[in-house]
């Protein structure tokens, strides 16, 4: 099974997600920026992608657009601590 990709600039959030998914025996691969994830898309794809929105560099929404354009079949889960996006 292909891994679940976790994209978040916050290390502790990545850690929690990795651990939580590992408990369910799900393989993960983590990225600290959308740029790294976009680059990794050239050599492989995830089963599911979980991404934060606000990160230094390209945002999670930009990552979402890239994925939807190239691999429309991959489910993407967007998570964010920013509850007001105005």
């Amino acid at each position: 099974m292909k891994p679940i990709w976790i994209v978040d600039d916050d290390e502790s959030i990545r850690w929690v997600l990795e651990k939580a998914l590992a408990r369910e025996n799900l393989a993960t691969q983590s990225f600290s920026s959308a740029r790294d994830a976009i680059q990794a898309l050239q050599s492989g794809t995830p089963q599911v992608l979980v991404s934060d929105i606000r990160m230094p560099g390209p945002s999670g929404l930009e990552l979402l657009q890239t994925i939807k354009a190239k691999h429309p079949g991959i489910p993407v889960i967007i998570i964010t601590a920013f509850s007001d996006l105005d």
């Binding site: 290390e11 929690v16 408990r23 601590a81």
Partner: peptide, 20 residues
């Protein structure tokens, strides 16, 4: 407030995992 939210998510998540 935003700077607090992220680490708070980490703390809460880690505590939940620890509980398990």
């Amino acid at each position: 407030a935003h700077e607090i939210k992220n680490p708070l998510g980490g703390i809460r998540g880690a505590a939940q995992l620890l509980e398990l």
